[in-house]
Simulated assay, not measured.
Amino acid sequence: MSDLLGFKEMCTRFEVTPRTLRYYEYIELLSPQKEGRARFYGPREVARMKLILRGRRFGFGLEEIRQWLLLYDQKGTREQYQAWVVMADRQLQALEAQMAEVARTIADLRLLRDETAASLQD
C-alpha cells in the first residue's frame, strides 16, 4: 500500500477538509479503496482530485466535472477531450464577460472616487 494515501494524507495533500473529501466520494467523484472504515486513495484518485480541484478553480460545477470524468470511463480519451474543449470555450466566454464587468465596475468606482476627492479640494 505504499502508493496509497490515507484519508488524512489526502486532505493534507490537497488542502481540503474531511467534509469535502467525503462529499466528493458521496457524489461519486472519487472512489477510494475501503478497508473497514478506512479509505485509501491510489494514483487514479489522486489524479482525479487534481482534475476536480482544477475544474473548481476554473469555475466548473461539481456535476459538470463528474459528467466530464465519466466520459473517460464510458467513451475514452478522445470524447473526453472533445467535451473539455467545448466546456473550456464556454467557461472562457463566461470569465471574459465577468472580467469586462469587473473592469467597468472599477472604472465607475474610480470615477466616483476621483469626483468625490475633487469636491473635497474645493
Score class of each variant (00 low, 15 high):
residue 29 L to P: 00
residue 120 L to G: 12
residue 119 S to D: 15
residue 7 F to I: 07
residue 43 P to F: 12
residue 70 L to C: 15
residue 102 V to A: 10
residue 107 A to N: 05
residue 69 L to I: 11
residue 112 L to P: 09
residue 1 M to T: 07
residue 84 W to C: 08
residue 37 R to C: 08
residue 112 L to M: 14
residue 75 K to E: 05
residue 35 E to A: 14
residue 77 T to G: 13
residue 94 A to P: 03
residue 68 W to G: 01
residue 118 A to N: 14
residue 109 L to M: 12
residue 55 G to M: 08
residue 106 I to E: 03
residue 14 F to P: 02
residue 45 E to D: 02
residue 83 A to W: 06
residue 3 D to A: 10
residue 77 T to H: 14
residue 110 R to Q: 12
residue 35 E to V: 12
residue 98 Q to A: 01
residue 94 A to M: 09
residue 46 V to R: 04
residue 89 D to S: 11
residue 16 V to D: 02
residue 46 V to F: 09
residue 87 M to Y: 12
residue 27 I to L: 06
residue 14 F to I: 02
residue 8 K to A: 09
residue 81 Y to K: 15
residue 24 Y to L: 02
residue 4 L to E: 02
residue 103 A to H: 03
residue 103 A to K: 05
residue 73 D to E: 15
residue 4 L to Q: 02
residue 118 A to Q: 15
residue 12 T to K: 07
residue 4 L to I: 04
residue 8 K to W: 04
residue 43 P to R: 15
residue 89 D to F: 08
residue 68 W to E: 01
residue 122 D to M: 13
residue 9 E to R: 02
residue 69 L to E: 00
residue 65 I to K: 01
residue 104 R to L: 07
residue 45 E to F: 00
residue 16 V to I: 13
residue 70 L to T: 11
residue 29 L to K: 00
residue 10 M to H: 06
residue 43 P to Q: 15
residue 23 Y to C: 05
residue 50 K to L: 05
residue 104 R to Q: 04
residue 102 V to P: 00
residue 39 R to F: 03
residue 103 A to S: 10
residue 73 D to W: 11
residue 66 R to M: 05
residue 92 L to E: 13
residue 49 M to S: 00
residue 93 Q to L: 10
residue 63 E to M: 14
residue 12 T to W: 03
residue 2 S to W: 06
residue 4 L to C: 05
residue 29 L to D: 01
residue 54 R to V: 03
residue 56 R to S: 04
residue 75 K to D: 03
residue 98 Q to F: 01
residue 60 F to S: 02
residue 118 A to P: 11
residue 40 F to C: 04
residue 90 R to T: 14
residue 12 T to A: 11
residue 114 D to A: 11
residue 9 E to A: 09
residue 37 R to G: 09
residue 113 R to D: 06
residue 17 T to V: 05
residue 35 E to C: 12
residue 109 L to R: 05
residue 109 L to I: 13
residue 85 V to D: 02
residue 13 R to H: 10
residue 62 L to N: 10
residue 78 R to T: 12
residue 90 R to S: 12
residue 60 F to M: 10
